[in-house]
Amino acid sequence: MRGIKVVLVQNDGEARVIDNAPIGTTLMEVGRNAGVDGILGDCGGGCSCATCHVYVDADWQARVGAADEVEIATLDMVSHIVKPSSRLSCQIVLGEQLDGLKVTVAPLD
């Protein structure tokens, strides 16, 4: 099965390009497996910790879609760094429509 390309920009400004990210996995799984700084996924993808918080690039927001009520409630735990483009990467399931997706990892504080 063919994967897609995703770009995660770390807080130090380094863009981590991941080619062949498996379709059907979450952005959090891909980032964590690649050792992307700031993608911890402490809850394992259960949408309960906000340790995989990212800012979705403006060009990708419509394709990624909006957060649901549970995700919004979880993001409230880090409300001091939430932006309109905030999403939890554990809730972004990768599909072909997200080939080339670019996000910036939110700070951990």
Rank of each mutant, 00 (worst) to 15 (best):
K83W: 14
G65T: 08
T74N: 12
K102W: 15
I4E: 02
T104C: 04
I81V: 14
K83N: 13
D109Y: 14
G13M: 05
G31S: 09
V82I: 14
C90Y: 08
L98I: 07
R63K: 13
H80K: 15
A106P: 14
D42M: 08
P107C: 00
G13W: 03
V78Q: 08
T51D: 02
R32W: 02
R2S: 14
V54L: 01
V78H: 05
I92F: 12
I92N: 10
R2F: 12
H80F: 15
E96C: 04
I39D: 00
G95D: 13
A66R: 14
E69D: 11
E69I: 12
L98S: 05
Q61D: 07
A34T: 05
L108Y: 10
S85P: 15
K5H: 13
V54I: 06
S85E: 14
Q61N: 07
Q10G: 03
A67V: 13
G44C: 03
G41E: 08
N11S: 12
W60V: 09
A66T: 15
G44A: 06
N20T: 05
I4D: 01
I72C: 07
G46P: 03
N11L: 06
N33D: 14
I4Q: 04
D109E: 15
E69Y: 05
H80W: 14
R32E: 06
E71Q: 10
C47H: 10
L98H: 07
G31Q: 07
G65K: 08
V17N: 03
E69W: 01
H53K: 03
